[in-house]
């Protein structure tokens, strides 16, 4: 009998790879939801570690709000070409054109909420029975209670009161036809863990994560990128600032932070010292105390 222990990044990595392989083994038609953000980029790296030299047993799926940062789309296409895996894109614009959703109006209009419908339609169209996502429990209070294998009913809804007990490292992926499972392999990672892993693995990221000069406006105390997707009026004053983004979402709901951090080491230092949580820069969570819980019940990621 001897003692040994794994470094925390090795332990988190091993857990995530185990979960990805359980998805491969338990489901007929899984998919990996790829947003172009650092968390889903980390998932791609973990999938390489889980399945290479074989192919991924799932395609990547991107829900495109049409209001993306161009840097994210460029990154996505380059990455897909590098790894040689299949990419499926679901377009929110198509859901709007089909009349399934109505574009929000007013100053704070965003397509963030609309993407739930496109996501559920894309899942139904391809018959995906498991969707792997990069959500983490440290992001938000409702996420803190979600299982690693999180069952959604045929309407895509999460029922927090009917979650399955998740015991030891045994994952129950049994579902009825029409249901699907959202799987979160990096549930137990924190934002800082993700950044430390990206540094250790030398993973390339979209450039908007690093400090750059950009036209921004200040709204509700947050810096928003000036773009054609933001409904602006005379009260909005455009200024030029050195900023970076801590999360990558729809351009109309993702706020920037002023920063000089243009290297990964600087970002890690900045986050370690930061006094604002990552989702503090998401307008979509500010609506009410239960904003995330309500969106998840509706099928949001």
């Amino acid at each position: 009998m001897s003692k040994y222990n794994l470094d925390y990044l090795d332990e988190l990595e091993a857990e995530a790879i185990h979960i990805l392989r359980e998805v491969a083994g338990q489901f007929e038609k899984p998919a990996l939801l790829f947003s172009g953000g650092k968390d889903s980029i980390t998932l791609v790296r973990l999938a390489e570690k889980a399945f290479r030299p074989g192919k991924f047993p799932f395609p990547l799926v991107h829900i495109d709000t049409g209001h993306n940062f161009q840097e994210t789309i460029d990154y996505r296409d380059k990455m897909v070409a590098r790894i040689g895996e299949k990419l499926i894109v679901g377009h929110v614009q198509e859901s709007i054109d089909q009349g399934k959703v109505v574009e929000q109006k007013g100053k704070n209009a965003s397509r963030n909420a609309l993407q739930t419908v496109t996501l559920l339609d894309t899942i139904a169209l391809h018959g995906f029975d498991a969707c792997i996502g990069g959500a983490r429990r440290d992001e938000e209070k409702a996420r803190a209670k979600e299982r690693i294998f999180s069952v959604r009913d045929e309407f895509g809804q999460w029922d927090p009161k009917r979650q399955r007990p998740e015991l030891w490292n045994i994952y129950n992926g049994k579902i009825h036809k029409g249901e699907n499972v959202r799987v979160f392999p990096i549930s137990n990672w924190t934002e800082l863990d993700v950044w430390n892993y990206i540094r250790r693995e030398n993973i390339e990221l979209p450039s908007i994560y690093f400090a750059h000069n950009r036209d921004v406006i200040t709204r509700n105390g947050q810096l928003m990128a000036a773009s054609p997707f933001l409904n602006m009026d005379d009260d909005d004053i455009v200024s030029h600032k050195k900023v970076r983004f801590r999360t990558v979402g729809d351009m109309s709901c993702t706020a920037a932070v002023e920063s000089d951090a243009d290297q990964i080491d600087d970002i890690i230092n900045e986050i370690s010292a930061s006094k604002i949580s990552e989702r503090g820069a998401r307008m979509d969570d500010k609506v009410s105390e239960a904003a995330m819980e309500d969106r998840k019940k509706g099928g949001y990621f």
């Binding site: 209070k141 803190a144 209670k145 009161k161 979650q163 549930s187 105390e289 819980e293």
Partner: peptide, 16 residues
């Protein structure tokens, strides 16, 4: 974390 818990002031589920 969950609204039901805040309303009742109890913990229903496992929160990490």
């Amino acid at each position: 974390g969950l609204r039901a818990e805040r309303e009742q002031g109890i913990t229903i589920d496992v929160a990490y």
